[in-house]
Amino acid sequence: MRWVVPEAEHMAEGTLGCQGCGGALSMRLVLKELGQDAVAVLPACCWSIIDGPWPVHALDIPVLHTAFETAAVVATGVKAAKTVQGKDTTVVAWAGDGGTFDIGLQALSGAAERNEDILFICYDNEAYMNTGIQRSSSTPTGTWTTTTPDQRPEARPKKDIMGIIAAHRIPYAATATAAYPEDLERKVQNAVAIKGGMRFLHLLSVCPPGWKMEADQAIEVMRRAVRSKVFPLYEVRNGRDYTITHWPDDLPLEDYFSLQGRFKPLLGNDEMLELVRGNVEERWQTLLARHEASHPASVGSN
């Protein structure tokens, strides 16, 4: 195999993810680098379903299902218990965008502020998918959801969760996506290796039904999000040091949006499209400036 991705599987077949589920793929790839001494804490999210109904479940590691707003604090508690037991278990809070950006934000911010020794992973499919595709604060401008229909698409920009996390000055935060599996595996390794403080991974995670697209384009759409700068791949250490880990190639935004039915209102609204284009470019320039400030010697040599 030519990919630097471990062959061992730690997620069983027969999960209840939809066809082409980015959440299932993200979990499968993360588990390959997480190690066996780990516990996953799941708030309400797609994975509450994907993991299967009792008495079966899908992961090689224990899973603790918990209430929507509590992923970070339950993970904090599990970690404390493991520490008392003298164990060095990696405790992962695995939450969707609802359990991270919206309902889980208070507990997340608290854990981050206390620099709890946990790994918080948000698999972000940009809406409340398993309850019927309602908008969340992660839903980008111009998106159709069942609560932001075509006539009144999402008007507000996607919440800058990485900015919020970086502001807590935690040791490690990174964006990643399953479309770049080697980059993803490396970031999981980095996150696991840094002990004693809070780590955060933000995974863009395709939802073919919610994004209104063909399941076989699931990898391609995530790849286009990165190439078009909609979802840049980078790491932030200690909330200050930014490193872009994959350089986008100026793929037109439209090539990302046009694969997905959820962006139909955006593609039909030039004013909104230009607003989005400006936001994407402004966020990219901000990121680029931070990267360059963190790597003064490498400026212009990417």
């Binding site: 069983a12 077949e13 027969g14 999960t15 209840l16 079966v56 479940h57 899908a58 008392v84 037991q85």
Partner: peptide, 20 residues
């Protein structure tokens, strides 16, 4: 805490019953 017994929280992997 030290002596808390390990308890099974699930009995089998999804692949035993969910032939997707």
């Amino acid at each position: 805490v030290d002596n808390y017994p390990e308890i099974p929280v699930s009995l089998a992997p999804t692949s035993t019953v969910l032939k997707t």
